[in-house]
Design a protein around this nucleic acid. Structure first.
Length: 430
RNA sequence: GUGGGUAUAGCUCAAUUGGUUAGAGCACUGGUUUGUGGAACCAGUGGUUACGGGUUCAAGUCCCGUUAUCCACCCCA
């Protein structure tokens, strides 16, 4: 039986055409170049891992519902990676004694989660992961903050359109344990409610808390907590490690002159392995991108799942989908249509070898060159170069060959000059 | 996993509400112009109306199912 193949890609994935690729490269190159500027080193891990790696960290539920997993031909349980952190922790744990701390590592890679696609979320996506291992103090956080803000500056993001929100899991524990005195089971549910606070709205939020059987006093305490500022934290700094850390962190951030960061009590970051600072960044200039641009936190205990001693770690992941939406919202993506610099038309098949020789010389000088392969009508060749936004056209026919020169045409202005090949190369490179 | 919207040319949309051969703009290809692009004009390619079934004399239009897509919930490592 023969079925016609569909041209649409698999659910929740997308094809990237050359023009989209320029956008991707723009984002990824910015991530990479700024990371290198900060001394971060690139690494990579396999796309597939044993399923237990994800279950050990996050519990059964996620593994069974949103993980792409299968049994391989040898009977091993395998999963396509839904995130980087466990693989990274494994790499570090494996060579812990020979790696020189601190480690500042980054990676850009694809991830897969079996989810229902919607705005800002697909089944296949790319994330930047940036992590620092071996720095127990808040300087790790500050290093990451500076990186994130530098990337946003590199994107020329308007300052009033983004905000890095910071909280601390120890502070949340203080709320759950010392103020509300919740059972472990309720901590999770109340935590999720707090995470959803801005989305739910005050009334729905209160209603939900009451459904969770919080009494009026506890509801009042949660609402009070959500209004806390750094000033309020000072009052409990001696009782809550989280409060003390946040105060120190923001004091140092102020000394560094960091902007666009704010203490936000409702930031939760799931309920898994975070141990201190947690962060999320949001678009605050529009309502088009409600999802977090990036998220991360401190996870000092993660190496213990490999039977290793704890190792301080702070890192975050930055997704490509919401970032692209954000950049489009503020028109921050440059409109270059091609990386090709020169187009070489072909008047006659007899000139093919000669033109290819010129193309070779241009390429050896590092000039991205496209040469016409078939001798079609000249007007259409120019039209092609124009449509592809190639900035220069180097016209070479019998006249030019006899004169040992080339006609260099600037496609933006329409000007053209008879110059030597060497002069043309200089003009193109300038 | 749950709920809702949508599905007509590559894209954006029409089709007098069930009636003859499914149209337009943009895009694409060619021509006017065989060594000069962007504009204009002319022509052309492109459709099993997502797929499958049903109702009807008649279905792009109504009904059912499937798939895809968008949005929300759940979740978000």
């Amino acid at each position: 039986m023969e079925t016609k193949l569909q041209t649409t890609p698999y659910k929740g994935t997308t094809d990237t055409y050359p023009q989209d690729m320029l956008v991707r490269n723009f984002m990824f190159n910015t991530w990479t170049s700024v990371a290198k500027r900060f001394g971060f080193e690139e690494y990579d891990t396999p796309l597939i891992e044993e399923t237990t790696l994800y279950i050990a960290k996050s519990g059964d539920e996620i593994a069974s519902t949103q993980l792409y997993n299968f049994t391989d031909k040898g009977g091993r349980e395998i999963a396509i990676r839904p995130e980087m952190t466990p693989s990274l922790a494994r790499m570090i744990a494996a060579k812990k004694n020979e790696l020189t701390l601190p480690l500042k590592w980054f990676n850009i890679g694809k991830y897969y989660r079996y989810e229902k696609p919607q705005k800002g979320r697909r089944r296949e996506f790319v994330q930047l992961n940036v992590d620092i291992f071996g720095v127990p103090t808040l300087e790790a956080e500050l290093e990451i903050f500076q990186y994130i803000l530098a990337v946003m500056e590199e994107f020329k993001a308007p300052k009033e359109t983004y905000e890095l929100r910071v909280n601390n899991r120890y502070l949340l524990n203080y709320l759950f344990e010392d103020i509300l005195k919740l059972s472990d089971e309720k901590k999770g549910k109340v935590g999720r409610a707090i995470d959803n606070y801005t989305k739910l709205g005050r009334e729905a939020f209160i209603e939900y808390l009451k459904e969770l059987e919080l009494n009026d006093k506890q509801v009042e305490q949660v609402l009070e907590f959500l209004k806390w500022t750094l000033e309020d934290l000072k009052k409990i700094a001696d009782k809550s490690e989280g409060a003390a850390q946040l105060l120190e962190l923001f004091a140092k951030a102020k000394e560094l002159g960091l902007t666009n960061i704010r203490f936000e009590p409702s930031i939760m970051r799931g309920l898994l392995y975070y141990t201190g600072t947690v962060i999320e960044m949001f678009d605050i200039g529009s309502k088009d991108n409600p999802r977090a641009l990036l998220g991360g936190g401190r996870y000092d205990d993660l190496l213990t799942i490999f039977g290793e001693e704890k190792l301080p770690a702070f890192g975050f992941a930055w997704g490509d989908i919401v970032l692209e939406d954000y950049l489009k919202t503020y028109n921050l993506i440059p409109t270059t249509k091609t990386d090709t610099k020169v187009f070489l038309p072909l008047f006659d098949t007899k000139l093919y070898t000669y033109i290819q020789g010129i193309a070779k010389q241009l390429r050896e000088k590092g000039i991205n060159t496209e040469a016409q392969m078939t001798a079609i009508k000249f007007g259409n060749q120019l039209k092609y170069a124009s449509k592809k936004n190639i900035p220069w056209v180097m016209i070479i026919g019998d006249d030019e060959i006899n004169a040992k020169k080339v006609q260099l045409k600037n496609m933006a202005t329409g000007e053209q000059n008879l110059v030597t090949l060497e002069e043309a190369m200089k003009i193109i490179n300038s």
